[in-house]
Design a protein around this nucleic acid. Structure first.
Lengths: 364, 364
DNA sequence: CCGGGTTGAGCAAACGTTTACGTGCCCATC
DNA sequence: GATGGGCACGTAAACGTTTGCTCAACCCGG
């Protein structure tokens, strides 16, 4: 307490309604302020701020005293006030089509874990369907609420892309790419090549693809590339690809089963199926079983993802390391917010995991 | 700049660094302020605030003009400032053990959807394991950041419960109950009764339970009640229950498989299994198949949840209406924040869905 | 013409921090 | 014994809204 005409430099009127701070937790109800802590410690608000944030310019003794008092009052800073003053929110929005689908929930889980470590809060936005998406990009509900937005495998129309600039936050893409946004993904062409290459190696020549559609006409990079990888790999091996071998079904738990049905009813059945995701593949396996078709003897199945179920069902799959993608994306976000100039584009490896649902075909 | 001596009441110095607002989006970079809008409209900040929030006291013409200008500048309020002033955050924390497990992700999805409708943002916290939980309750990282906290099926120690009061926000529980917190759940005793009752009706007498443990010693109400329901129903029917028939395995995708293994190796096998969740049940079915035990002929299986996989695998289950629980919880939160006095405790119905994995036992 | 009610709008004080600047004070240095 | 440089801390101006007051103008019936 250096200068000050009297002892009490901070007259009570400045202390937001504190008249006689009771012994307990400041005034009833409302949580303690910095002002309360400052008053008790007999220092200025500025000093409290510095002390609590480990900034220099505060004596060790004062610092300890302030700490103790803050603790006693169980004081925490008001994030609103703090962020208003420092112009950043400490929040990141994670945008997914829906939170209850494994791929997205796994991404969300990984992102949250890593971002939390960095002291950032995670806001979830579910944006599903074309209309929800267009409203999202029209209103940009996350504007000014977050420091960064992570779009998880979200297809975006060209005109919507333009509005990204208005977001007023770093935009990062996970599990695909979009415009010139920094992103983290796997090489989906390679994913398909791994899966189909494995089937070719086993001797398959009649290989089908089962995928789900967004039913919305927007092309998502991962989708496009995976299909292209499928076609390219077959073409490179000189395999014919009848159009009926590419089956698209609306997203849902039955998609894989329906896809298999279509394939089994074909005059010339494929001997192997490349399923777009493990969930699809598991559903496919189940339907095969129901129809008495033995996998892998009569039909091989390979999925994509690295879903826990794949292990359970002994499913051959291309693991795209969702957890790694999530962590890497989170790190990208953190680096951008710190003002670093991180690698703007990371392509993580995918890995073929051979299990029991693929084998050589019965007939050559 | 107190009382305006001239026409320009809001002199530029108050307009945060605006010297000559260019035609475009206010000053470069930084988003537009209310002050910018006010200046352009030639009105006071207060009027802008009222106009944009549909508060009375603004002429229709002025209101329209302000709206147009705000639109043109693509202005959005700063949530920090707004919330600092009105003392509420407009945010709700959803706390789950982990986001990548179906039950929690489905809850999260349902909560987000409904809360978003109400204009609330959703912050996710993953709090898994006993140490993470104790830190969570020690630091209460969500303090002052949210208006309400939704704990989703989260076991809490007695001493941790005490700290809930410090949260400084409404605390609501989904999928269970806790202290005197308002909550939404199903009757888990009834859930077990439905499942086991169904098996008894089919003629089973040797019925086992497979559950997962949190490995942490904390008892979660739903767990306790489900186990009790299981025991009570069997007891009421005069069924013996050897202790080996209650199998607990650590959480994970293998839990169901491991549980089944233990049961199959018993000298006297049960004829039916009540699985704690559909994921467990599906894993159990798979292991039965691998070991050549036919379900339901040699062993009936019933799960709990209403997981999409249950339909796919034709699994008999007790649907606990996760979506309904989520929605109902969200509505409870909204009502509490509005200051209503809603029903503090809602018990939603659960429903037995009979499918193909349960049948009469082979031997009486 | 007058008084009272209504309406539209501005003033300024919060809200609770952060931070660029000051300002004494102590101590080492020449 | 000045000089000057840290150090510890205080001052006050942001940060961008919300909201209780105040006030002028206008309308209308009497």
């Amino acid at each position: 307490m250096v200068k000050g005409s009297g002892a009490n430099v901070y007259d009570l009127s400045s202390l937001t309604r504190v008249s006689t701070p009771p012994e307990g937790l400041s005034r009833e109800g409302t949580p303690a302020n910095m002002a309360d802590v400052a008053a008790r410690a007999g220092v200025s608000i500025a000093t409290v701020s510095r002390a609590l944030r480990d900034l220099p310019g505060v004596g060790q003794e004062t610092r300890d005293r302030i700490r103790a008092i803050a603790d006693e009052l169980s004081y925490v800073v008001s994030p609103e006030a703090s962020r208003l003053a420092r112009r950043e929110t400490g929040r990141v929005a994670v945008v997914v089509p829906r939170a209850d689908v494994w791929f997205y929930s796994a991404m969300l889980a990984g992102l949250e874990a890593r971002l939390r470590q960095a002291g950032l809060d995670v806001l979830v936005y579910q944006v599903d369907g074309v209309t929800a998406r267009s409203t999202f990009f029209r209103d940009l509900p996350s504007r000014r609420k977050v420091d960064a937005v992570v779009l998880v495998a979200m297809p975006v129309l060209a005109e919507e892309e333009k509005r990204l600039d208005l977001m007023g936050a770093e935009v990062v893409v996970a599990g695909g790419r979009l415009r010139d946004c920094p992103h983290v993904r796997v090489d989906d062409h390679e994913v398909a090549r791994l899966a189909v290459g494995h089937l070719l190696d086993l001797g398959h020549r009649r290989i089908a693809l089962v995928r789900t559609s967004d039913t919305e006409g927007t092309r998502w990079s991962a989708d496009v590339e995976r299909v292209r990888g499928f076609r390219d790999t077959l073409a490179a091996a000189g395999c014919p690809l009848p159009e009926e071998y590419v089956v698209t079904r609306p997203f849902g738990v039955r998609a894989g089963a329906d896809g298999v049905d279509a394939l089994l009813d074909l005059p010339e059945r494929p001997t192997a199926v490349f399923a777009y995701s493990d969930e699809l593949a598991v559903a496919a396996l189940q339907r095969l079983r129901e129809r008495g078709v033995d996998a892998p003897r009569e039909m091989s199945v390979v999925g994509v993802d690295g879903h826990p179920l794949a292990e359970l069902f002994d499913l051959t799959t291309v693991d795209q390391g969702v957890a790694a993608q999530a962590t890497s994306t989170a790190e990208l976000v953190v680096a951008l917010l710190r003002g670093d100039r991180p690698e703007r584009s990371t392509v993580l490896p995918s890995r073929l995991v051979v299990r029991g649902t693929t084998a050589a075909p019965l007939d050559g």
